[in-house]
């Protein structure tokens, strides 16, 4: 590549990077300033007198630590559940014969694109009937059990597992569950971790369900904590953006540590949800 081309390319890349990174920088910068400086005009591009006071205040007034734990718990359980549900169903759809297989799989595929908003009302009434409002269950159970993309992904993966692997186990007298558990799970580790990370991300950032199902502050997830923070302190932008920073840090850490899985997750699932 010629030098001038390289310069153009890098300029473009940097310009785009600025648009992508600036909001995060701005979030951080404002979160380190007292309110007076935040509302100063013209705006200050960097904190002249940085302070951690906003963070201290929001941790005193608002239990962001608890919210983080809640989000972590919900997202982990839901994602683990989805792994199990999707892989075992994917295994059955790929390697077993049973009546109605095509129909059931078709139904799963058909609902792949239904937005949550369409089913949320009956779901809400169902959760009410079950007495699950203001518990974690509405955030966990549906995500645990619905993995349309996951089933699709695992089925296509398991269809391509060589027959010999399975046959060797059958000779040893292994039951189908043992075959699934001892052979198919280990060979699909990469797909599973990709699926896990995507499902974790979706549940971590979920908003509508926590919004309508959670009332007690001690159960709040980070997203809900942040939005109710807006309701309470919406003029105190230094607090708000400190809250935003706190909500972003954990997932960024996970992302930086597991970049490869994120990318695999997206390329293999393709679909969100």
């Amino acid at each position: 590549m010629s030098k001038s081309k390289k310069i153009i390319l890098y300029t473009l890349l940097v310009l785009i990077a600025i648009v992508n990174v600036f909001p995060f920088y701005w979030m951080l910068s404002i979160s380190l300033q007292p309110l007076k400086a935040v509302y100063a005009y013209p705006p200050q591009f960097y904190p002249k007198h940085p302070t951690l006071d906003n963070y201290r205040q929001i941790f005193v007034k608002y239990n962001f630590f608890r919210f983080t734990i809640n989000s972590l718990f919900i997202a982990t359980i839901a994602a683990l559940g989805q792994l199990f549900t999707c892989s075992i169903a994917g295994f059955a759809f790929a390697r077993m014969k049973f009546r109605g297989k095509e129909l059931l799989f078709g139904l799963i595929l058909a609902t792949i694109m239904v937005p949550l908003e369409v089913v949320i009302i009956p779901e809400f009434l169902l959760m009410g009937k079950l007495g699950w409002i203001n518990t974690y269950l509405p955030m966990i159970v549906p995500s645990f059990l619905i993995g349309t993309t996951g089933v699709f992904l695992m089925r296509s993966f398991y269809e391509n597992v060589p027959k010999e692997l399975e046959e060797a186990a059958v000779v040893d007298g292994a039951s189908p569950f043992m075959i699934y558990w001892r052979i198919f799970i280990p060979v699909s580790r990469a797909s599973l971790s990709a699926l896990f990370i995507i499902s974790f991300l979706i549940n971590w950032n979920a908003f509508l369900r926590p919004l309508i199902y959670l009332n007690s502050k001690k159960l709040y997830t980070l997203t809900l904590g942040l939005i109710s923070f807006v309701g309470e302190f919406s003029a105190l932008w230094n607090f708000l953006l400190a809250g935003a920073v706190v909500s972003v840090v954990p997932i960024f850490t996970v992302y930086l540590l597991m970049q490869r899985q994120f990318i695999e997750g997206i390329t293999s699932t393709g679909v969100k949800g």
Binding site: T111, I120, Y180
Partner: peptide, 19 residues
């Protein structure tokens, strides 16, 4: 094997959809 996925499908997807 597909029970959990089916509960998800019928109770939390198709059921609500028809409802």
């Amino acid at each position: 094997f597909i029970l959990l996925a089916m509960v998800g499908l019928f109770v939390f997807r198709l059921g609500p959809l028809f409802f």
